[in-house]
Amino acid sequence: MRAARATLGFLRSQPFALVGISIYLLFLVLAIFADQIATHDPRQILFSGAYRVARYLPPSATHYLGTTAGGRDIFSQLVHGTRSALTVGVTAAFCVVFLGSLMGLLAGYLGGWVDRIIMRLSDIVLGLPFLPFVLVISALTRPGTVTLVASVALMLWPNTARVIRSQVLSLRERGWVEAARVTGCSPMRIIFVHIAPQVAPLAALYGSIAVGWAILTEASASFLGFGDPAAISWGLMLQDAFANQALSREAWNWFIPPGLCIVALVLAGFLVSRGSEKLLFPKLGD
């Protein structure tokens, strides 16, 4: 209860974080109730008569944002796209946080050869170009959400791991960690029970940035033709719009909304991280 009140108070003092959280909540609602909110099946080709596909319809009461060149309802695609964006963003962020924290904790606490191996690994990953790696992996395996999330997680964990590691390095010298060690706690117990909760907020901060990275990466990969062909995502919507020359048709209703949704969701991650940065490192901002 106190925690909830503290959070609320924090949000009130941090308008950035408040806006970010609100955007997240809005998209979460859209994703959960996508089936109810969408007016059509986003995949279905709609007809406006016998064998006449309902293509390029302008926005109207039946099609809030009109239809695509292929005769699909744009609004419904946009709503369903929320699901894939959140899935990609949240799972990627979760993987980054998990992998990054685990590596950072182990490297920082155990030190020695474990530390050296993990740091070498992270150096190698930092030497791999991000987007090219994702593209090559998508091309090598079957392109899909799993591939994408996995490659994003694989590429982003070192940043988190490094920060967590340096945090752990300072924590392990603290008295209470020393005390736990003296009382005979196993290293694993110290790492996961005593230290992990301390670094969790920091990891979450990196997670919220990873949400944005993952969504932007999905969009870029889709634009270049390496997206999950079966998914309904904002990136694929944009790809579809550009391939069908929505710009030349001045079909703003088609290519502006998905772009804005991406901006909003990625921005939310930045805002949350900026807001909570002040909570975590009060010295830094003010």
């Binding site: 080709i45 292929g70 033709g225 062909p229 694929l236 579809d240 391939a243 069908n244």
Partner: peptide, 10 residues
């Protein structure tokens, strides 16, 4: 895929 061959995919 749609991205590679939009007409054939449709």
């Amino acid at each position: 895929p749609q991205a590679a061959a939009p007409a054939a995919y449709q």
